[in-house]
Every structure is written in C-alpha cells, then in structure tokens.
C-alpha cells in the first residue's frame, strides 16, 4: 500500500432517525442512499488518483448497498478501464454507537489517511472534529436533518474535491480552519465541544436528544450563523449574520415571546416555524469565556441534548478559532477549474 493515497470514510448509519420525524415531519435519509453516496464518493476520488479507501464498517444496510452497487458496476468499470479505489474496512468490533467513530478515527490517523470524508449529521461531524487530529482535512457531508455544519452536496463532486486535496494538488486555497465552541463543565475546560451552537435549556433529561421545544431554550452561543439556516443558529443568523470566517461568535439570551424585547419568526427545525423572544445579543471574541446561567436542565450541543445539569453546575463556552480543518468543495472546484486540473481524460 505504500505510496498509494488513502482517504478515510466515516458514514454513520444511525443518523437521521430521531424524534423530529415524529414531531415535525422531518425528512428521512435511507441507508441505501448513504451507501450509494459512498460509491459516488469513490468514483470522484478515483477520478483524481486516490487508490485506497479505508472505511469504518457500517451496518444497517449501508455497507450492503455499497457492496451491491460496487459488484454491479465492477464489470463495466473493468471493461472500460475506469479507475476505482480499493475499499478496505477497518477491522474493529462494531458497537453501533459513537465509540465506533472514535475508534475508526484513531485507526485512520494511525494509517496516515490524507483526508477523511464524513457522512452524517451535526452530531457525527462533532464527534469527528473532537477526536480527529487537527491537520487531517475533513469533508463533511450532510445525511441528517437540520444540519448546520455538514453540507448537502453531490458526493461525486465532494469526492473529486477531497481527492484533489488528498493527492496534494490543491492545498490551502480550499482548506478552511473552522471555529469550534469548547464547552467547559465545573472547571474541566475541554469537557465537550460544539461546531455551531450550544444551547442551555430547561429540558431536564437528555431523553430523545433532539432539542425541538423552543420554550425550553434560555440561552445560546453560536460560532457562526446564517439567516438562511434551519435550527438554533438561525436565531442568531436573523439578528447578526456571522460567517464561518468571521473571527467572532454570538451569545444570545432568549425570553418568552410575551416578555421579550425582540420577537423573531424562526425556522427552528424542518417543519417548525415558531416565534422566539430575544433579550440580549453580544458578540464573543476568541478565547473569551462565556458563563452560561445554569439551572436545572441540560446543555444541547449542535441541537442535541448532551449534558444533564443542575443549578450547582458551572457551564462555560469558549470560542476557539483553531477547530477542525475542512475542505471547501466550492473553493476546491473553482481552483481546479482555474488551474485546469480536470482538463483531459482520466
């Protein structure tokens, strides 16, 4: 395998199946399609010279769908001499939880992957960002609902862009150092993290995880905010649009609409547009720590309740500009066009 460029693939078969399907008509994303996405990524990677793909084992029909598509395509690929990377599954015990992803990342680092493609929602991206070495470029593709961080992209193109970075033909022009929110708990400054938003809320239990009841949310901190986003960060996006490149974040205190200074109409989740009251908006600078007003409730990270807390707990959030390194697919393809990297046949 020496000399061959290897790209890692983490495709979370469990994303896209939470309570929002029940309460807000959220979309479904089946694992057959996720398997097909991995196939299309491989086609894109192969087109620019990636010879090896190292993938986390993915159950729930995802790998089966990929394998069937590969098998069905194999004769034509061979006859037409089209490139296709070798596919290797990491040998590991599969537990069907986040520990799988953490183990797979460490194995990918150990094997020296040149980039990692991540298929999942905000939760999957967050776990990868938290556990992955800082300098491995990530390409995060959305396969869930309500995602603020991973992008909805055609996998073939994402595969080409990632391949161009992995093979060294495109570098800094297409790489972006993302912001990350470090979440401290009772003095442990690195207790957890979020890529886009942290929300203090009065839901006492982690329960079904997704945070979908607006009345429960009292305070949010965001690293970036787009007015055209769906989810918690869209509250911030409607108040003070903050790009992924902006060197600051926002801290917002919410209030019941009837008591609030400002009331916004917010698409809080797919299929859920609600009034949200806002009392205070402040920019936060990198390194500065924001102490959240703790009460009995929980802290949601990127839209999912993760940490159950009581009034005695101290929760602080710090904006860190040195988050994960990601591949900007649009920038990579623009650069490929400018330099003619895809001119000529495969």
């Amino acid at each position: 395998m020496s000399g061959a460029v290897t790209v890692g693939v983490i495709a979370n078969p469990a994303s896209g199946r939470d309570i929002r399907r029940l309460v807000s008509g959220a979309s479904v994303f089946d694992n057959g399609e996720k398997g097909n996405m991995v196939y299309r990524l491989m086609v894109g990677l192969a087109a620019v010279g990636v010879e090896h793909v190292l993938m986390m084992p993915a159950a729930s029909g995802l790998y089966d769908s990929l394998e069937r598509t590969l098998r069905a395509a194999a004769p034509a690929i061979a006859a037409e001499h089209r490139p296709m990377p070798d596919l290797e599954l990491i040998e590991m015990k599969v537990r069907h939880n986040a520990r799988d992803t953490i183990y797979a990342i460490s194995e990918m680092e150990h094997r020296g992957v040149a980039a990692i493609l991540v298929l999942g929602g905000d939760g999957t991206s967050r776990i990868v960002a938290r556990h992955c070495a800082r300098d491995i470029p990530l390409c995060t593709l959305s396969t869930g609902t309500n995602n603020a961080f991973p992008e909805m992209r055609e996998a073939t193109v994402a595969g080409i862009a990632t391949g161009l970075v992995a093979t060294g033909r495109i570098g800094d022009e297409a790489l972006r150092r993302e912001k990350i929110l470090r979440v401290g708990l009772n003095g442990d400054a690195h207790h957890d993290c979020a890529l886009v938003d942290v929300a203090m809320n009065s839901e006492r239990f982690v329960g079904a995880r997704a945070l979908w009841r607006p009345r429960e949310i009292s305070e949010i901190v965001v690293s970036s905010a787009r007015p055209d986003a769906v989810g918690l960060s869209s509250i911030a996006g409607l108040l003070d649009p903050t790009s992924r490149d902006a060197p600051h974040g926002l801290h917002i205190r919410l209030a019941p609409p009837e008591d609030a200074e400002i009331v916004l109409t917010v698409p809080l989740a797919p299929g859920l547009v609600v009034p949200i009251g806002v009392n205070e908006v402040n920019r936060i600078e990198p390194g500065a720590s924001v102490e959240l007003t703790a009460g009995v409730g929980s802290v949601a990270l990127d839209g999912e309740r993760e940490i159950e807390i009581s009034a005695a707990d101290e929760v602080e959030v710090r904006l860190d500009l040195a988050g994960p390194l990601t591949i900007d697919v649009s920038a990579a393809m623009r650069e490929a066009a400018r330099r003619g990297l895809l001119n000529g046949s495969l």
Binding site: A14, R17, D18, I19, R21, L22, V28, F205, V206, G207, A208, R209
Partner: peptide
Amino acid sequence: GVVVDGHDFFAVYE
C-alpha cells in the same frame, strides 16, 4: 419511524 435508546426511560417516554 424513530429510534430511541430502550434503556433510557426518558427517551422512550418522550
């Protein structure tokens, strides 16, 4: 169709 942790009373309850 929704998946929940069946060990967690609160997840099931919700």
